[in-house]
Nucleic acid binder design. Structure first.
Length: 502
RNA sequence: GUCUCCUUCGUCUAGUGGUUAGGACACCGGGUUUUCAUCCCGGCAACAGGGGUUCGACUCCCCUAGGAGAUGCCA
């Protein structure tokens, strides 16, 4: 038997971590079994549907490199793969159930239903439809129709007995029929099917063999089986995936931070990191290995190793994975990644100049290990392309030093910067050490003012590398500017003291 | 309220009757280092509780507690 699985999102919002995890598990399972991965768009909720969400779905899957074997834009033998194009089909199957007495028309208004729920809640009764229309006589139905009442079609859940389904992870899950949501709606009054109907019909028609979906669907599992039985179909295997939670243990949502994949993408996360980390929430290969490429997972993934309990999404660990993957990238690849961010932040020109490109190529080696996100590059590299000046005197003057000492240290450093580029780093380091002894400050205390002067920040890539990238002339210019600032400040201070003395 | 699922360090997890309960992130310390970062070394830290079964339970069974999810003309 060929394995056929599907990812069936509904385009009512941006693709988020939870959805992508489900997609990934389905995709990896299909690949590892040599089966087919199908994409099906469940756009039956016309209220919440948005074109933007649909585009985001395609973009996200493409960015992650999750290719579907059958589905929209790709086709296949079981299309169309968009549910809004299959409404006739659902209608036909729903009518069939009504004809056979397995389902019925319900004319209850939403007001009546709202009311009912309110009363049930207040009286602490169990919630759910009261099956008001389940046993309407033919006369009553005809009257409702004649009155022009709109109707929905509901499934008749047996009042007694129990229903169970087999879950690869959970084993056999059994539910008493009386505990199943009483008579769920199959067809809405707008002519569109609900998830339950469309899902079952499509999964059967598309010959889906395994349903991997989030555990939030467990409660409707038995009901879906009942639907399969009503049609006389064989239900597929189920595998209910553990949910992804936020730090507080609640279902992961916006208030925990970004959850949409596009947000992660904009922030400078690599798809490799997201795929790897998201797969590790709820799945583990063994007791030590945790780095996997997509290709490796396509081979190694297995349902047996999925955990049953929900997992908390750890942004910190994803960040760590991202850093690891950044450092694994080749310099050439990283340059490709970095350029769009530099452009977006106005660090380099839209049409990258030769000079800019040269700096970019030369700077990557000292930038890479400082990146947690690709987007970090702009802050880090700004001083190489743009004028600086956002530093303050307190940034420049090292701890336990005054204006004069700082000026002396910086002037000493300036001497060495002049001939800097004709020497090796080792030679330079030797000279800087000697010079720092000469002016009686620690090496660090001499280099810190220099660092701020040329990079504008106390935190920067290594000084020697930065100097080389920036060029001696530019560096001297910046150093001189800082020295003059310091001298002005020192003079002011003297005058102040002089005034006080009089 | 009712039903269903879940329960090993703070977090992700390994573990399938006998282990000093292992790894990773985070955190804390130390080292390398011109800052930051990287990297290396070390430390902290868990079997929810109670009953059984057994020579022996993290592992099997039951109960309790806790958590989550569902209970829509949303998926």
């Amino acid at each position: 038997m060929e394995v056929r699985v599907r990812y069936a999102p509904s385009p009512t919002g941006l693709q988020h971590i939870g959805g992508v995890r489900t997609a990934l598990f389905n995709y990896f399972f299909a690949r590892s079994m040599g089966g087919k991965f199908i994409l099906r768009v469940e756009d039956t909720d016309r209220e919440r549907f948005s074109e933007e969400s649909l585009k985001d779905l395609y973009d996200t899957l493409e960015w992650l490199g999750i290719n579907w074997d059958e589905g929209p834009e790709k086709g296949g033998d079981f299309g169309p793969y968009v549910q809004s194009k299959r409404t006739d089909l659902y209608r036909k199957y729903a009518d069939q159930l009504v004809d056979e007495g397995m389902a019925y028309h319900c004319y209850c208004s939403s007001e009546r239903l709202d009311n009912l729920r309110e009363v049930q809640k207040k009286e602490k009764l169990s919630y759910g439809y009261d099956r008001h229309c389940r046993d309407l006589t033919k006369e009553e139905r005809d009257k409702n129709e004649k009155d022009g009442l709109t109707s929905v079609i509901r499934l008749k859940i047996p009042l007694e007995g129990k229903t169970s389904f087999d879950d690869v992870l959970l084993g056999t899950v059994t539910r008493k029929n009386k505990d199943i949501s009483p008579d769920p709606v199959l067809m809405k009054s707008d002519g569109f099917p609900t998830y339950h109907l469309a899902n079952v019909v499509d999964d059967h028609l598309m010959e889906i063999t395994h349903i991997l979906r989030a555990q939030e669907w467990i409660p409707s599992g038995a009901m879906h089986v009942l639907l399969y039985k009503a049609f006389g179909w064989e239900p597929p295997f189920y595998c209910h995936l553990p949910m992804v939670m936020g730090k507080d243990g609640q279902k992961l949502s916006k208030r925990h931070g970004s959850t949409s994949v596009v947000d992660f993408r904009k922030r400078g996360y690599l798809p490799e990191a997201i795929i790897n980390y998201v797969t590790m929430v709820g799945w583990a290969f063994d007791d030590s290995r945790e780095f996997f490429t997509k290709e490796e997972l396509e081979e190694l993934f297995s349902l047996e190793k999925i955990s049953k309990s929900p997992g908390v999404f750890d942004y910190k660990k994803l960040e760590w994975f991202n850093g690891q993957y950044i450092r694994k990238k080749s310099e050439a690849d990283l340059i490709e990644e970095v350029i769009p961010y530099l452009k977006k932040d106005g660090i380099i020109s839209e049409e990258v100049t030769e000079k800019e490109m040269l700096i970019i190529k030369n700077m990557m080696s000292i930038m890479t290990e400082r990146l947690h996100f690709i987007s970090d590059i702009s802050e880090l590299a700004r001083f190489l392309f743009k004028d600086i000046g956002n530093y303050t005197l307190t940034d420049i003057i090292p701890k336990k030093m005054d204006f004069k000492g700082t000026i002396i240290a910086l002037e000493g450093a300036r001497e060495l910067v002049k001939g800097f580029s004709s020497r090796t780093d080792e030679e330079n380091e030797e000279l800087f050490r000697k010079k720092s002894e000469e002016v009686k400050v620690k090496l660090g205390s001499m280099l810190m003012p220099l660092r701020v002067a040329i990079s504008g920040s106390k935190v920067s890539p290594p000084i020697f590398g930065s100097l080389r990238l920036l060029g001696v002339d530019k560096a001297l210019e910046r150093i001189d500017h800082v020295i003059s600032l310091l001298k002005d400040a020192a003079k002011n201070e003297e005058e102040q003291e002089g005034n006080n003395g009089q």
